[in-house]
Computed example of a mutant assay.
Amino acid sequence: MAKGDVSALVIATASGAPLVSERPKPIHVLCGRPMLSWVLNAVSDSGVSEAVVVTGPDGDWIAKRIMDTPPSDLTTRFLEQPRSRGNAEAALIGMSGFDEFDDEGDVLILPADMPLLTGDVLQEVLTVHRQTGSACTIACTRQPRRSGTPYVLRDRHGNAIGVTVSNDDGEAGNPVDSPVGVMVVRRGLLAPAIRRTMPDPATGRHLLRDVPGVLADSGHAVATVAVLAELFEEVDNRIQLAAAEAVLRNRINHFWMARGVTMIDPSRTIVDATVTLSTDVTLFPGVSLSGSTAIGEGCDIGPDTHLDHCTVGPRSVVRSSTGQLAAIGEQCIVGPFAALSPGAQVSDRTVTGPFYASGA
């Protein structure tokens, strides 16, 4: 790692309890990809090349699921926090996972449950951090102050001097800068600052939100950067999971339409992040494409068709049919109401006719 580079530290210690699930929250799936994978891809897209993920006791489960399809151009390591003692302790554990120690480098710290993050917005946070030369930069949104809302404390000159939580409504409604849980800290200062934090009176845990105050008290500059709240939405329940998936599906559909794919009704078209589409593909309403499905140039798919881990050759038509782990050749006409079972192969230029069932 070059001197002064940035590494990422992802806190993925949340269990599945908020989602009423045995599965750890970081590997709940959105658009065919685990939640944590969306965060790691945003980190990679921001230009960061090294990440350490700190998990809870289900670390093996999480690591295996993520490394089945690892993020590109990002060296990723996993460490476990055996017992939940706060995200500050998790960060200390994560620091031991970096290859080299570079006092002049920076650490981008973020949670694993923000799947709407993008590389552009993380790059913006990193750019402000470098331009200000601060020891710590906090990503914030502007919102009305409410009881229980964390917000940035400032001195009389407007300089950030820490983060606190509003415990009363005496100034309710006044706009404040509220941290979203993402910050950048100079690497050589992070561990000493964490060790100087005091345990939270309510939980007894050491929290990362106290790090900026420790650094400011030591004479280090702390900066803030305004970000869009909707990109930093955390997923804490199934309702928020569904809302985040809707946003990601819309992004995916726009991505493919900008690259020559026609969607007759995007609101009724489901394409997972793992799917590959070619130019001049037309997707009719009710299409659902998942897994490693790949659709060749000039195909018409749908309506009401579900293909999972399937390949479709160029200029084929698939109408009102289902398929899993199946291969359809070039210039085929499949369906309506065909059912392709795992391993099915439809040869080039085949017309299956209606109600076709592979192997029947």
Score class of each variant (00 low, 15 high):
T76G: 06
A139T: 12
A202C: 07
V29Q: 04
P82D: 06
L116A: 11
R187N: 14
V10F: 04
T311E: 08
M183H: 03
V317K: 14
I333N: 01
D45G: 02
L116S: 03
E89Q: 08
S49F: 12
P71V: 06
S290C: 10
R195P: 03
E297G: 01
D45I: 04
W61A: 12
R268E: 15
I328E: 00
R249F: 13
T274H: 01
I333T: 03
G56K: 06
N87Y: 02
L215K: 11
R209T: 08
H206I: 13
V281L: 04
R187S: 15
G162R: 07
A327P: 02
V281N: 08
L117A: 06
L340K: 07
H206D: 12
L289Q: 13
R268Q: 14
V163Q: 01
G133W: 02
T141D: 08
A327F: 05
C136K: 05
E233G: 00
C140T: 15
I239R: 12
H306F: 06
D73T: 09
G204E: 15
N253S: 12
R130W: 14
L40G: 07
A139Y: 04
G105I: 13
E124F: 09
S292N: 10
V163K: 03
G162H: 08
D5N: 11
E234W: 00
D73E: 15
T13H: 05
T224H: 04
E80S: 06
Y151H: 13
A2D: 03
I301M: 01
G181K: 01
D45N: 07
N167D: 11
R209V: 08
L36V: 10
G313H: 06
V235Y: 05
P150S: 08
G162P: 08
S72E: 14
L283S: 02
G204D: 14
L340W: 04
A216K: 07
L153S: 02
G32E: 05
E22S: 13
S358T: 14
F255T: 05
R251T: 11
A229H: 10
E330T: 04
V275G: 00
L30T: 05
S7Y: 05
N87L: 03
H306T: 15
R154T: 15
R319V: 14
R142P: 00
E297T: 10
V271R: 09
T352P: 10
F78A: 13
S72V: 12
R145T: 01
N250D: 15
I301W: 00
W61L: 14
D272N: 10
G353A: 11
P342I: 09
V54Y: 01
V211T: 12
T118A: 07
W256E: 09
G219Q: 01
R154H: 06
D102S: 12
V163R: 05
T76S: 08
T55M: 03
T282D: 02
D155P: 06
S178E: 09
A112L: 08
A216V: 07
D348W: 12
D120G: 12
S178M: 03
T224W: 07
F355T: 03
R315K: 12
D265C: 00
M1C: 05
G16A: 10
I62S: 07
R249I: 07
I66N: 08
P111H: 06
G335R: 07
T224E: 13
T76A: 09
